[in-house]
């Protein structure tokens, strides 16, 4: 009871202090809008709200999260790209709508021209998993089976036409193997389909916890970051395949943000990712904290965008 009262009091105090301290000079001096292109409750939304709260507390202003969803996250990011570049509208960005989807659809922004990349704070893992007692022991077993039985291997991933989808198709293409992609909506449904025997192979972030839980086995990692649960397993590029795109969570703003704004966010985000709250959230969600400031993040985006452009054209995905 006392604990509840204490926590309520704390929450109220935080709420009361925030608007009061918004009188500091320079950037920021008023409420910042943080656009989350994903709906309330998902991973992107949780991350956005956590950042809004922690960064807001550190900057001494209120940061409001606005969910603007739709169009495979391109609508929300489009809204960020069209905002006034004064630093008072920023947003959450993730891999697919930045480095992958624009090669296949008409996005309402050009990822390299219309956005400023502020910082990357998470690089999640995308393990390629099979059931624990699967006959596939290595990535080579999967490839050999797909080569020997064209179209018989059934696989899926969380987001159709997202980064991991492109990466795995590029791998099959490079090997001259043919597999059948079975679409499911979201990583937890891919895991359910894998456990239920509907598909043979899956690539989704949920695979990390499922492997910890003893349900699955990791055969490869679809991003450049080694999987912490299976550090010996190669990434797709280490295994000699065309791409292993970074699956990042980051903050971006419209093109032409001032140096003052970028410096402020660089400093604050570096502290946010080290805060105990964020570290706890990330470790529970199995996000790999991987901070990259404005310069490094911009480089990652450019490199992955160009690599994906070639891969997408190669496999002919539209």
């Amino acid at each position: 009871m006392i604990r509840l009262l204490k926590s309520t009091a704390l929450a109220l105090t935080v709420a009361a202090i925030v608007p009061g301290s918004a009188i500091a000079s320079g950037y920021p001096s008023k409420t910042i809008t943080f656009i989350c292109p994903y709906s309330a409750g998902g991973g992107g939304d949780t991350a956005s709200r956590m950042i809004a709260k922690l960064a807001g507390d550190m900057m001494g202003v209120k940061i409001n999260v606005e969910n603007k969803t739709g169009g495979g996250a391109t609508i929300g990011i489009g809204a960020v790209s069209k905002a006034k570049p004064d630093g008072y509208t920023v947003g959450f960005v993730s891999t697919s709508p930045i480095t992958i989807r624009p090669h296949m659809m008409k996005a309402p922004y050009h990822p390299l021209k219309d956005l400023t990349y502020i910082s990357q704070f998470v690089a999640s893992n995308q393990p390629l998993v099979v059931l624990k007692d699967s006959k596939f022991k290595t990535l080579k077993d999967v490839i050999d089976y797909a080569k020997a039985n064209p179209g018989k291997l059934k696989w899926s991933t969380s987001v159709q036409r997202g980064g991991p989808h492109v990466a795995v198709e590029a791998m099959f293409k490079a090997e001259g193997a043919k597999a059948t992609f079975i679409p499911f909506k979201g990583g937890s449904k891919v895991l359910a389909a894998l456990l239920g025997g509907t598909i043979d192979v899956g690539m989704m972030s949920e695979g990390t916890k499922a492997t910890l839980d003893g349900q699955t086995r990791i055969l490869a990692e679809g991003t450049p970051n080694k999987n912490p649960v299976a550090p010996d397993v190669p990434t797709l590029t280490e295994a000699g395949y065309p791409i292993a795109p970074a699956i990042f969570f980051g903050v971006a703003g419209p093109a032409g943000l001032s140096k003052e704004v970028l410096d402020k966010w660089d400093a604050v985000m570096a502290k946010v990712v080290k805060s105990p709250e964020f570290v706890a959230l990330a470790s529970q969600r199995k996000w790999a904290l991987d901070f990259a400031g404005h310069d490094a993040f911009t480089k990652i985006v450019h490199a992955d965008y160009n690599a994906a452009k070639i891969a997408v054209a190669e496999i002919g995905m539209k």
């Binding site: 409750g41 949780t46 937890s188 359910a192 916890k209 910890l212 349900q215 959230l281 529970q284």
Partner: peptide, 27 residues
């Protein structure tokens, strides 16, 4: 039983458990 959230409500509950450091799933 499997750590698979059936819908958005279950996904949020999973998130809340994880934040509090409570493991759900087969183990």
């Amino acid at each position: 039983a499997f750590g698979i959230p059936g819908d958005i409500a279950a996904a949020l509950i999973l998130g809340a458990f994880m934040i509090q450091g409570i493991n759900v799933g087969p183990l």
